[in-house]
Computed example of a mutant assay.
Amino acid sequence: MTEAPRIFGQFYHISQGMTMTETGRRMISPFFVEEALDCLRRQGKSPKKVLAAIGLPARIEGPISAEGYGALWLAIAAEMDDEFFGMGGRPMRCGSFTLLCHCVLHAKTLDQGLRRALRFLNVVLEDPAGHVEIADGLAQIVLTDRADGRSAFAYRAYWILLHGIACWLVGRRIPLRMVDFRCAEPDHGADYRLFFGAPVRFSQAVSRLALDASVLKLPIARSEQALKQFLRNAPANILVRYRYDAGLAAAIRKRLRQVPPASWGAFDDLAAQMRMSPSTLRHRLQAEGRTYATIRDEIRRDLAVELLQTTTLGVGEIAARLGFSEPSAFHRAFRKWTAKSPAGFRRETATASGSR
């Protein structure tokens, strides 16, 4: 019997299908499913056959579980012999993701691991090509295209792979500060914003993913055995474990979003509300790589972006709504978050929307 192709560290058997379970929380938009199936159609292959092989109906009308989407990714990769849905300059042949993980496993820091991963993907895919730029406290992974650019789905797939590996290497979710897409906003752009849990902009000069530069110093200490376990569950574990809405930090974020920033209490008050001692809450947040201050900053940042994009409120009024004592403090914080002034960000967003 011919050995089945190894995909994302797993042996994929179409004849056996795959049993899927619901996450109960993290569901994948049907638009993302349809975009993945379109990749099959462009190569003249039958989506119905692939969907049937993993026990999904021929017509997907609602969200599916992360495990279901992971199974679909595996099935499409097997059918196309391409783990990047046929969207690169060259196919990412089955087994490439496993080799990529081995390539970065023994890096000493996340900085070294990311740069190795980008070199690997540049060689395998050829186009797009990625590199790291560091400025204004941000580490930006920038993608350049030889041709006219790609779909939002292609860039999203690239970010899923790269961000997922990075999070696994350091053992925690790495918060995203900004996600830019070179392409125009698709009809379901809201799904992209919800998926990343960070400010998302379309019609930009380049596609980029921005992280705090400080995370590049994080050490990597993963074993070969840990890698085997990671690969057994990929890519579904990337979609579930390192989502922005997982863990204690997500529960705190949800609690804080229910009240105005100006009414947020002190850390000890939060601990009491959550029936924990301050030391226990602090320790559990540290295990997720988070702090109360960073969670509050992220919410303020997201609210600031939303208010600047969707309202005509003055910068001073936005600053007050976000709980800043004065507009100058808001200006400093917003520059730290986005490397732009609030007014500059609003003008840029308005220009991009007008061009669309």
Rank of each mutant, 00 (worst) to 15 (best):
F31V: 15
Q43S: 14
Q43L: 14
I60W: 06
I54H: 07
L37I: 09
F32Q: 04
F31K: 10
V33W: 02
V33Y: 00
A53D: 09
P30L: 02
L51I: 02
P63S: 05
G55E: 06
P57Y: 08
F31L: 12
F31P: 07
S46M: 13
K49P: 08
L56M: 15
L51C: 09
G62T: 06
S46C: 13
D38W: 14
G62Y: 03
R41Q: 15
G55T: 04
E35A: 11
V33I: 06
Q43R: 15
E34V: 02
S46I: 09
P47M: 12
S65I: 02
R42C: 11
D38C: 12
R41G: 10
I54T: 08
P57F: 07
I54D: 00
I64T: 05
D38G: 12
A58W: 05
A53W: 05
L37S: 07
C39R: 02
I28M: 08
G44T: 12
P63C: 03
L56H: 10
S29L: 09
L40D: 09
A58N: 12
R41D: 12
D38T: 11
L51D: 07
K45D: 11
I54S: 03
Q43F: 15
P30M: 05
P30T: 00
G62W: 00
R41M: 13
L51Q: 05
K45M: 15
P63V: 02
V50D: 00
A53K: 00
E34H: 10
I64N: 04
G44L: 13
C39H: 07
K45I: 11
L37T: 06
K45L: 15
I60K: 03
K48S: 14
V50I: 09
S65A: 09
G55W: 04
A36H: 01
K48M: 11
G55F: 00
I54Q: 01
V33K: 04
I60Y: 03
G44I: 13
G62N: 08
K49S: 06
P63Q: 06
S65T: 03
E61V: 14
K49T: 05
E35Y: 09
S65G: 03
L40M: 01
G62K: 04
K45Q: 14
P57T: 01
S46Q: 13
V33C: 02
R59T: 15
